[in-house]
Design a protein around this nucleic acid. Structure first.
Lengths: 78, 78
DNA sequence: CTGTGACTTTAAGTCCGTG
DNA sequence: ACACGGACTTAAAGTCACA
């Protein structure tokens, strides 16, 4: 079902539920602000290591992020 | 908890439960055989797209792979 | 506060081989 | 059937100015 397609949106959802800006998330993850923007929009193809750093910065982990990705996909894929 | 560290072992577990060789998995995923070897051993840092192709080739998806990764991590981290 | 194009540097991913 | 290495090509990492 291509959960990769919903990774970015899942990150965005987690970030917004923490009421963080992209800038704040970027700082926590040690990543550039514009890179986070690209990941959330699906314009970037991040590596596993980067994904892990983002998950950490969200106080979460990759299994939880991908569970969210599936939820988003289930809705969007009607 | 760094689930990224257990992604490779999770792939290996899924592959072995399907009784596939690394070469067969590589062919299905359209990835080089030596690269699969590196991913399973944690020596490589795959991109989201490659991870998705591996999940597809395993007849699974990334949320399931990462659930397996957590199980493996829970055991190893005792 | 975020999206985007353009860019340089670094590492992903391939292809040849070995034991 | 798998681990591992060297050399190579391609794409991601990482950064910036501007809308």
């Amino acid at each position: 079902m291509n959960l990769a397609h919903f990774f970015g949106p899942a990150v965005r959802k987690h970030r917004e539920s923490l009421r963080l800006s992209q800038e704040e998330l970027a700082d926590r993850a040690g990543i550039d602000r514009t890179y986070i923007s690209g990941v959330e929009r699906g314009a970037r193809n991040p590596t596993l290591e980067v994904m892990q750093r983002i998950a950490n910065a969200l106080g979460s982990d990759l299994d939880v992020i991908f569970s969210t990705a599936r939820e988003i996909g289930a809705i969007k894929d009607n």
